[in-house]
Write a protein that binds this DNA or RNA. Structure first.
Lengths: 345, 345
DNA sequence: CCTTTTGGGTTAAACGTTTAATTAAACTAT
DNA sequence: ATAGTTTAATTAAACGTTTAACCCAAAAGG
């Protein structure tokens, strides 16, 4: 059966197309009460659903929001190993749905660039999670739609940022270990890239050490990828070769899980022999055994905040562009069972 | 700066709009070699990117694929607690991207129904995960686009199904326990609904019991939600009140995690006192401590398969509609450390 | 009673494409 | 040289909306 269009409704109600469009758009001062109800009846009767596509063409909108998330190395899959992203997406979807937007999920490929997606799809806005090449940010500017960056430290007035104070987070984690009497503290982490979130956490780690008058030992930082496997091998390594290390800060919960596994495989116990503190508080953290002590970032709130800021910006399009604003979601230590208090002994 | 359209390209290349469109669509027999290159040059020069929206209007396509996933009870969030879905989505996105499609992610709300989304967005196809109300399936038929259902047992020739043999899975899990010498076997599971996946697994559980000449004891099935918390409370309950139970089949890994926690909290050990087998093999299963023995379903393959089938159907639109086909992804037990062999003793 | 305003409606252009129909020129074959 | 065919281009309608511009009748103001 043919698709019903505004034309059918108009005919059915015995009015012009324009009249229908006016009531669809709530411009009710243009139409008499009588016809309004007549039109509504026809809409119901015919089960008419307007085409967002057609509307988009003339209004130059799409009611679509792009969500760009990191991909695996081979550019094949979206990086969902870390549930972190899913939780955030869930939050984003929830808020944009309220305003009739949908999210389109995409990785950015070699061939199709971000700009391609944005302009060909006529995105109304985009949320970009993670860190990418300079080129991508350039493209974003050209795309000329509201964009909010999550967990990125590019400082450009074009973009709104939401994230956490990673330096503080690193500091808090390390300090928590120190406060519990640890003095030789390892750091296991992904690649420390200039202006990346892990660099900030690393900086926080160093600050806490310094503040406590502890010596920063580069040998104690195990830098590779933010992954379970890196955690696991580092755990084994630490347990076997660094008996003096009593506490380790893993810059992501996933890493912490691997770390604990590695430590146990090497015959030591957590937290009896080695304490571990993670970062993120993904939902798995409290389910893990032993339940993971970690720096909690409110993932859901983060996604929600990003989405709200984006919607705001889309709304007042040419209004006050929220220039280079950066919102920080608060952090908090959640103590569970992987950090031992050396002081109490 | 204004958006560049096909018109600009045409002007720049000194040809008609139609000519440009023809080369864009590879109908190169309609255009001379000379002009083809001239047009390509203009495209490059102006950085022209075609509007999918506009094209969609005339071709009646959107190059958009809807992915419907379950929501939390309150209909607020997408159900991402279970990483299961994220993994599948990642797979789906990967394959549809190859063909230039994007996925739009949505929960189905009270207000906006599935049909609304589908027709207003002019979806080219949809993948629906999980089980919904009759009404939704009715709407789907009316929408009249290719649809593939993942993990659903609605039998209707309109839909292509991909899933696993849940009955067999339940059987395999239970049999594995039996083969390891267990005789009193608990089942902890979500609500057993007619024609739902958990019902099938439950049926498999009973079949394995029966086949082994074991008595089916309704008291041994702990039916509630597929969630960590349900697992946890059931674990405590089993450990405390059912000393005769030595093995438990949890119908989802998430549940198994909770189960193990509950058992340990009640002072018993896994697998020494009670063995546990899960279902799914989400990536967390091998990271868990102890690593979880489970029935592995190839989640990624499942998503991939669904996506491929959908694309196929979209392609040969009016061609052979893959009528009511059901594809089963193979299952396999992966033995890790939560099932104890009682026989060897 | 004439002019202006207002309410309620319609017409038609525009959004950026695709594609059927048409035309014009250049070849082919006789 | 003529008719027929092929090639390469253009024109214009169509897709489903929105919205500025226009129109007319009735009400309001003077």
């Amino acid at each position: 059966m043919r698709k019903i269009t505004i034309k059918d409704v108009a005919r059915n109600a015995g009015v012009s197309i324009a009249a229908v469009s006016y009531v669809l758009n709530g411009k009710e001062n243009k139409v008499s009460q009588d016809t309004i109800v007549r039109i509504h009846e026809s809409i119901k009767e015919l089960n008419y659903i307007p085409s967002i596509t057609a509307r988009g063409l003339v209004k130059n909108t799409s009611e679509l929001i792009g969500v760009i998330i990191p991909q695996t190395e081979d550019h094949k899959q979206l990086v969902f190993e870390n549930p972190f992203y899913s939780e955030m997406i869930s939050a984003i979807e929830a808020v944009v749905r309220e305003d009739g937007y949908h999210i389109i999920l995409a990785g950015v490929d070699k061939g199709k660039t971000y700009l391609d997606i944005s302009t060909s799809r006529n995105l109304d806005g985009a949320i970009i999670m993670g860190i990418y090449s300079e080129q991508l940010y350039e493209e974003c500017k050209q795309a000329n739609i509201p964009i909010v960056l999550i967990d990125s430290y590019v400082h450009d007035n074009e973009f709104t940022n939401v994230g956490i104070d990673d330096e503080l987070g690193g500091y808090m984690a390390t300090k928590h270990l120190i406060d519990n009497g640890h003095r030789n503290i390892g750091l296991v982490t992904g690649m420390i890239r200039k202006d990346g979130v892990v660099e900030k956490r690393f900086l926080g780690y160093k600050r806490a050490l310094q503040e406590a008058g502890l010596f920063y030992n580069p040998d104690y930082v195990f830098e590779n990828s933010v992954s379970y496997v890196h955690g696991r091998s580092s755990g084994a390594l630490i347990a076997e070769k660094y008996p003096e290390i009593t506490g380790v800060f893993a810059t992501a919960d996933m890493v912490a899980f691997g770390l604990i596994r590695g430590i146990k495989e090497a015959g030591k116990e957590v937290p009896e022999d080695i304490s571990v503190i993670g970062f993120d508080d993904i939902s798995m953290a409290h389910m893990f055994l032993p339940p993971l002590t970690t720096v909690k970032q409110q993932i859901f709130l983060k996604g929600e905040t990003a989405a709200k800021l984006l919607i705001d910006q889309i709304r007042k399009k040419r209004g006050a562009k929220a220039h280079g604003k950066r919102t920080h979601i608060p952090l908090e230590i959640v103590e569970r069972e992987t950090v031992r208090n050396l002081r109490g002994d």
